[in-house]
């Protein structure tokens, strides 16, 4: 017994969204899928290639190295930015005139275009003219991010921490402000110290926003391109060539469309998989 009337006119209202999503997601993605299973020659002639590009990418040490660098980069910045962000948010004032000053200062790095951030840090860190580069050398460190891989990594991570910790700070701050005053009073009345307040009130209450912060920072840092490209260009050598930089080199430098497309899909699936794992783990720990 199904007496539901089906209104076919409703499809018309869904159509614009379908068209939009098709244009900005489905069609480009399918084009990539198309490239990934074919060998492409000039003047757009295609030959079926099956899964050879996927095999090639998955077995190439170049891809493995880039992936490892990417993972190292992402987990390093997460390990720094999340605790640092929470610590700064805890230290920020809750009321008074300083609140807006702090918030605006915190938001500033987020407002700067990404390539400008890269260029800024490039100049800032140059060992001959940059404040940071010259300063470090004057202090006796042998610092040159254009020649030494370790220095390049140090600069890259410092830049990302500078650029993106603010996001974690703002999210954590919003979470902290939403905790009713009564919680703090209740803890005080119980005789709880500031560590106990953090451990048993603030941290549990921040769980949700921190989940979002970690996810956002994970996805963004995994896809990072502009800033390292402008800062180091992937160098010295290949030492800071992250996945996205490598991908662009293959696709637009060497014009290997097949391997590039296969790599894009693998890249996409890795992000999807890791995001899902992250989200599931954090949601499960919350449910417990």
């Amino acid at each position: 017994m199904n007496n539901k009337t089906i209104n076919h006119a409703a499809w018309i209202f869904v159509l614009p969204v379908v068209a939009l999503v098709a244009f900005n997601a489905i069609i480009p993605l399918m084009t990539v899928v198309n490239y990934s299973v074919q060998e492409t020659f000039g003047d757009n002639t295609f030959f079926w290639a099956g899964v050879i590009w996927f095999e090639e990418v998955l077995h190439s040490s170049r891809f493995h190295d880039a992936l490892l660098r990417q993972l190292a980069f992402t987990f390093t910045i997460l390990a720094i930015e999340v605790p640092l962000g929470v610590a700064i948010a805890l230290a920020m004032p809750r009321k008074g005139a300083w609140v807006s000053v702090c918030l605006v200062t915190m938001a500033l790095p987020l407002l700067i275009p990404w390539n400008v951030v890269g260029a800024m840090w490039n100049i800032f860190a140059l060992p001959d003219i940059g404040l940071l580069g010259r300063g470090l050398n004057a202090l006796g460190f042998d610092y040159n991010f254009t020649r030494q891989p370790g220095d390049a990594w140090f600069t890259l991570i410092l830049m990302d921490v500078w650029h993106w910790t603010s996001l974690v700070v703002l999210l954590a701050y919003a979470g902290l402000v939403s905790i009713p005053d009564a919680y703090y009073q209740a803890a005080k009345i119980d005789g709880a110290g500031s560590f106990a307040i953090f451990r048993f009130i603030q941290l549990p209450k921040l769980k949700r926003v921190l989940t979002i912060a970690v996810l956002l920072r994970f996805m963004d840092s995994f896809m990072i391109y502009t800033e390292p490209f402008v800062l180091t260009g992937g160098g010295p050598g290949n030492s800071t060539t992250l996945l996205s930089i490598d991908l662009v080199k293959i696709a637009l430098g060497q014009f290997d469309l097949g391997p590039a497309a296969a790599m894009s899909l693998i890249y996409f699936l890795i992000i999807l998989l890791l995001s899902w794992v992250f989200y599931t783990l954090m949601m499960r720990s919350e449910a417990q």
Binding site: P180, A182, Y183, Q185, A186, K188, I189, G191, F200, I201, P204, K205
Partner: peptide
């Protein structure tokens, strides 16, 4: 300080430690 007084308080909102 309230910490060194023997006081307890119950609020309009239900205030408990969320993860205990």
């Amino acid at each position: 300080s309230v910490r060194s007084r023997n006081v307890s308080m119950v609020y309009q909102q239900f205030i408990n430690y969320p993860n205990l």
